[in-house]
């Protein structure tokens, strides 16, 4: 093996390693696999999670669900804001009675259950661990 070949193998190996063990995975916005929703745009997701306009492509009212363990990463990826800023944003809307924040769920198992039970629910999971019965409608890069 000459030096060029060795370099190529080394770089291929390291690329494979990086792909297999992502330093930080992306965030997947998910719905029930049977909801009939194929795809959402980023602005759809902003409208729904930020309480601006909560209509799904199916015509139904969206039920956004915040998952406590991923919440900070999700809003950083969606609108580039931290949780204090998100709380500040909601303080304005809640205390003026304009809109209500997403439902807050502490455990990711409960989020999973809720999405399985409700065709209008949407939440988010780590894109490296999407359960089979959930459908990814949007992936947010981190």
């Amino acid at each position: 093996m000459n030096r060029v070949q060795r370099l190529l193998i080394a770089s291929t190996l390291s690329a494979t390693l990086v792909a297999a063990v992502p330093a930080s995975a992306d965030i997947a916005v998910v719905v029930n696999a049977n909801s009939g929703i194929d795809h959402l745009t980023r602005s759809d997701a902003v409208n729904i999670f930020m309480g601006r306009y909560r209509k799904l492509p199916t015509g139904n009212v969206a039920l956004p669900v915040d998952s406590a363990s991923l919440k900070a990463r999700f809003y950083r990826a969606l609108v580039n804001k931290d949780l204090a800023e998100i709380n500040s944003y909601w303080a304005r809307l809640v205390f003026s009675g304009e809109a209500s924040p997403p439902q807050q769920i502490a455990s990711s198992d409960d989020v999973h259950q809720l999405v399985l039970q409700n065709m209008n629910a949407l939440s988010y999971v780590d894109s490296a661990h999407v359960p089979d019965d959930m459908h990814v409608v949007l992936t947010l890069g981190e």
């Binding site: 709380n87 500040s88 944003y89 303080a91 304005r92 003026s96 009675g97 304009e98």
Partner: peptide, 23 residues
């Protein structure tokens, strides 16, 4: 549709002007 006692939403932010945490 809202009925009852409502914030006076006359300017942007006017109905949340006492919520210091919001600004």
């Amino acid at each position: 549709l809202r009925v009852g006692r409502l914030g006076w939403d006359v300017y942007q932010l006017s109905d949340s002007r006492y919520v210091g945490y919001a600004y």
